[in-house]
Amino acid sequence: SKYQKLLKSQDYELWYAEAMKYYEQEDYTRAATLLGQLVNIYRGTDKAEEANYVYANCLYGLNDFLTAGHYYREYVKNFPAGDYAEECQYMSAYCYYMRSPKPRLDQTTTEEAIQEFQLFINMYPNSARVDESTRLMDELRDKLVYKSYLNAKLYYNLGDYLGNNYQSAVIAAQNSLKDFPDTKYREELSFLILESKYIQAVNSVEEKKEERVRDTIDEYYSFVNEFPEGKYKKKADRIFEDTDKMLKGYNNEVAVN
């Protein structure tokens, strides 16, 4: 066929022209095959910029987000003042976004996506794509928080299996709140901390019990302060009633002595 003949020829000018035609026709497979070689051959020439940009778009069209992202970044690196630099910076981040896996899996790509969007916003603060970038970043951050929430919850669920996992749940949830202070899972994480502290207090050895009970009550006050009408209010109140009773027991003891 014509395409096979083209591949055999070494006429790069013709390759380039045909590749652009295939790209227009959205035949990304053929366009990408040709451009993949041309980007190396054309390095440093006047066609390099266009070839790089179109090649990245073809790869994106083929859903190869890993390689597409790489070539968008190549464009930004080599042609920082080029016509498509803004778009390419955005697309580089967007390719990471597309590759970001489910929250239960390794989130390295998600973190890279957030960094790349941040870089885009820093570089082009007036771009029309800033709003969209912010929205996607929030979505990605939620994923990370949800993941860290699952981690904390897992420790909570593990309970006493091989040691005190409630303490681990508290630390994991606190870390998660520290890393993402304005997350939408804030209430869940805060309540998880309260619940874990409560169970630790109940199961505690006598010498640490009073301290843990007090700690739980402190936690309760800061929880209801932040979420006075929250969905966990009732459960939290029950925890308070119970711990308060325990605390009173200690106070009475002090009074008797």
């Binding site: 699952l150 303490q167 681990s168 870390n175």
Partner: peptide
């Protein structure tokens, strides 16, 4: 862990936060 869910790994880990 690009395939295995994190909890499958984490529940086997003996070094835990706070220890």
């Amino acid at each position: 862990n690009t395939k295995t869910h994190e909890h499958v790994v984490r529940r086997e880990i003996r070094t835990k936060p706070g220890q």
